[in-house]
Every structure is written in C-alpha cells, then in structure tokens.
Amino acid sequence: MSYWNNNRNKRLLASLLAGVLAPTVAVGAVMATESTAEAATKKARCDVHAVLASKAGEVGIPPTLEFLRQQLSQDEFAVYKSFYLVEKISAKTTLEKAADFKFKSGNQLSLKLLGDDGAKLKLHAKMTSRDGASDLLNADYSIVPKGVLVIAGGEFEDGGNSGRLFFAVQCDRAG
C-alpha cells in the first residue's frame, strides 16, 4: 500500500511539476524562437548598377564603376573596351515583398529576400524581357552580403554608345 501510495505521490508530484514547468518551458521556447526570429535578416537593401559594356573606345572602367574593377577586369569582360554606368537603382526587399527594378532598357528585375543562413543571403531573382511578355530569368540563389551577381542582358544603346547591357546585383542585410 505504501509502495502504491509512494508511486501515486510520485506520479502526482510529477504531474504537478509538469503542469507548472510545461508552460514555463513553452513560454521559454516561444521566447527563444522569437528572439531567433528577431535576429534573422528580414530586410535586405539591394543595389543594381546597369552597366553598358562596349567594344568601342578606350574608356575602360570609369570612376563610378571602380568598385567593380575586380569583376570587370576578368577574362569574361576582356572583349569590352569601355564601360558606362547607365543607371543605379536601390531598393529594399523583405521576406514578404519583392523589390522591383525598372530599367531604361525596359527590362524589369524583381528581387525577393528568401532567407539568411548566417553566411549568405538567399534571394529570388526574376527578370522580364523588354516588352514584358516573357521571363528571361527565374532563379533562387545564395550569395555573401554585398557579393555581386552579374546578369547579362541584350544589346542596348544609350547616350550614343552601344553595347551589351550588364546588371550588377548586390544585396546586403538591412535589418
């Protein structure tokens, strides 16, 4: 009988403890989740530089594109002798909403933050053709903050210069 009582008391005690502790643990878990979520990146700022690369002239890399020198000096771009900044557009994207970039060329780029694994931002990029009738690109990608992804578009003419249009896409954490 005492054994039964002892066991029963233990079970009673255990259920009492569980009753008291469970909400505490649950609240703790919720708080931990919330704080983790708060720490996660919810917003990113993205800059897109539309660059016209031309095979003509000897302009090279102008001061406004100096920050891209390492990339534009790669063999990939060796065929081009002149680079021109056509426009720069900045916008912020969140986990809920994409940022749309409309370019002079008519192309439209949409960037949406998908997440952040601590080392890299995960984004979705979508680019439409100049007439908007078709998608040229739909991609999910990861990249280090401020890293450059270059999207090569079509032929373009601006300010009397013609060449191929490149979009240098960079995103960084913004909260």
Binding site: K102, D131, A133, S134
Partner: peptide
C-alpha cells in the same frame, strides 16, 4: 506598364495572349 515598349510588331492580342 509595358505599353510604351509595344511597337506593334505583332498584333495587340498576340502580345496580350503571350503575356
């Protein structure tokens, strides 16, 4: 939004249906 870029190389409904 893309109307300024539409140059009428195809008919409007062809363009619209493609979109």
């Amino acid at each position: 939004r893309y109307l300024p870029n539409f140059e009428g190389q195809s008919s409007f409904y062809t363009w619209l249906y493609r979109i």
